[in-house]
Design a protein around this nucleic acid. Structure first.
Lengths: 346, 346
DNA sequence: CCCATTAAAGCAACACTGTGTAGTAATAGC
DNA sequence: GCTATTACTACACAGTGTTGCTTTAATGGG
């Protein structure tokens, strides 16, 4: 793998990634990437040739020739992303900058089977199809295998036993397809949009379950079976109430019990303790909250988490609600496709 | 950073890493690295020229010219590693293969200060000095900054406030020095010795405290402030006994309480639950146990952890005791130095 | 024993990377 | 208009892995 093509692709992605944050000049790209000005010139030349960048005016910073501003041509490449929930399918159209341009939502029947799903997906995708489309991402509930694109027995979907969803979808849609867990696509959404600012972060998705997406050292951590992030069944109370998973006192069980009895403070506090544990374990500086439960009570969850985080740390932990709202999983699935083509390789 | 020198260094490290597992041939290196046979020839030529590899006989696999066996010259490069505990300093000499060749141990006075430590370190290092030495690694208790080499206020060592230990040691020893948390050097020891087999693993160090070293996707995860792995203060019992850290029901508090009252099963079971949570969260397939407490009761800890791991998983989790015993932290510190020079860059 | 066959390894030319050198373009200040 | 300064790039270059071919060294059938 590591050859000259890899090297070029990597540097192209570095420059494109910096350009995604806003208008930049070649000089700034060289400073921030560590590449020499000559190398930046070559890379920028390639990217302009591919229609990914354009020159857009100049910026004068004192004496000397003014710097040429470079701007990302955000709508030169588009991707679709899908979020699959147990009752709903959401498809979103996203540009290179990670901006959501369009969306379509359709209900899914209870315990829908793979053929039904693929048909419905095809319908929504065709409605949003575009000649600049580079692929489709699918954010699905786990467990699944990201590398092979196979969905394994998700709870509540009885017809989904080892379904090669990626190949089925690629065949039907005639487009490259990427499959990943919903929590992972969600954290990709944050990472792609915030760029270098976000290198070590956790996205907490609180819905019917509780899962997390981990961004460690700038990359999504998926683990050996690409099923990392099952944080809902982490023990918080050794002798706590029994959980659906068979163990006792899981985060998810405690949270859902508190929520069911209307104890919002209790529910958010469970999430807060769990997140504080994660921050200590992984040493991250960003936490993003998302999911239906969070979006229904954003300030309560923000307060619940912030209150539990250690305050005397050298570096503060930034806690926020995803600005993408209900679109975060689907939009992230689209950005996962973008990152496969225009992100740093491997 | 990403230039031709990086590319060469990376491929050299890939080949050297494969050669570390045992005798290999150029053909096998090409197959396992993905490089072309010609590229492997060039890389191997360089490595032989540097004295890192030698040809050692042939292996016949049927018709045709027999493959030439290549062997790592393990003792061509050596490194020293130090483990700093609150009462003891241990320095270990290690070769390229990660084999411990020699060691020296000295007691440290209670609440020792930095000058005392550096003097003692210099004494032990000088006793083991060697002309093939490439550097010295130091495994210290956290918190510390791996990147800058500064030790921040470790508990119990009152004179250690923001001490630039790496530069001090480099000056006194006149050798490159690397500083890292003890849990991280320990997991490096396992990773360096087991090679590609170990890509996603956790090393659990149970001593007076409880910390972990994380190997994720083949790299040590350190986090933004390089202080990841503080697993001892993760909540296992929301309403549990108060911990020294100020929170309640921490893994460490529960474990130490059980151990103090002689409840070995209880103590190992706490570790088991904590490890099971980690396995689910990070999706790892290897767990290595180490530390004084574990080495005192190895089978009890092995059983305690194995009993708590989910059994119906697709992939089994391998749980083991470190074969390096008391040397694991110091030996890992030495291998950290080796990996800085001869491991994959960045 | 001879020699065709097979496989490993090396050699030479090559395409392509980022880099060093030097030259050109465009501004501010005088 | 001139000079200094800064941004950018054309070109030769060192060094990467690759392609195509040759050399080397074994097997095994006559």
């Amino acid at each position: 793998m590591p050859n000259l093509r890899f090297l070029r692709g990597y540097n192209d992605a570095v420059v494109l990634g910096l350009a995604r944050s806003g208008a930049v000049t070649r000089v700034e790209l060289a400073e921030r990437s560590g590449l020499t000005p000559q190398a930046v010139s070559k890379v920028v030349g390639r990217l302009i040739g591919d229609g990914l960048l354009v020159e857009s005016g100049t910026r004068n910073v004192g004496v000397g020739k003014p710097r040429t501003l470079l701007k990302l041509v955000a709508d030169s490449r588009l991707a679709l992303g899908a979020q699959v929930e147990r009752d709903e399918l959401r498809v979103v159209l996203t540009d290179l900058a990670g901006t959501v341009l369009d969306r379509a939502v359709a209900p899914l029947p209870p315990d829908f089977d793979p053929p039904t799903f693929v048909t419905e997906l095809t319908r929504l995708v065709d409605g949003l199809r575009n000649d600049r489309l580079i692929g489709v991402g699918i954010g699905f509930v786990g467990p699944l295998d990201h590398r092979t694109g196979v969905v394994h027995d998700p709870t509540g979907l009885t017809a989904w036993h080892d379904v090669p969803l990626r190949s089925w979808a690629e065949e039907r849609l005639n487009l490259p397809v990427v499959l990943d867990k919903d929590t992972n696509t969600a954290v990709v959404a944050e990472a792609w949009r915030r760029g270098e600012e976000l290198r070590d972060a956790v996205l907490v998705l609180v819905g019917t379950g509780l899962g997390i997406g981990m961004l460690l050292d700038g990359r999504v951590h998926r683990g050996v079976r690409t099923n990392a992030g099952e944080y809902g069944h982490t023990t918080l109370q050794l002798d706590g109430p029994r959980c659906v998973c068979g163990r006792a006192g899981c985060v998810e069980a405690l949270h859902n019990l508190a929520a069911a009895r209307g104890d919002l403070v209790g529910a958010t506090s469970v999430v807060g303790v769990a997140v504080a544990d994660l921050v200590q374990l992984l040493d991250i500086d960003h936490v993003v909250l998302a999911g239906r439960a969070v979006l229904a009570e954003p300030t309560a969850y923000l307060d619940g988490v912030r209150a539990r985080l250690p305050k005397d740390e050298w570096l503060p932990v930034d806690v926020s609600i995803t600005p993408l709202g209900d679109d975060v999983v689907a939009a992230g699935a689209a950005m996962l496709v973008l990152s496969e083509f225009y992100g740093r390789p491997r």
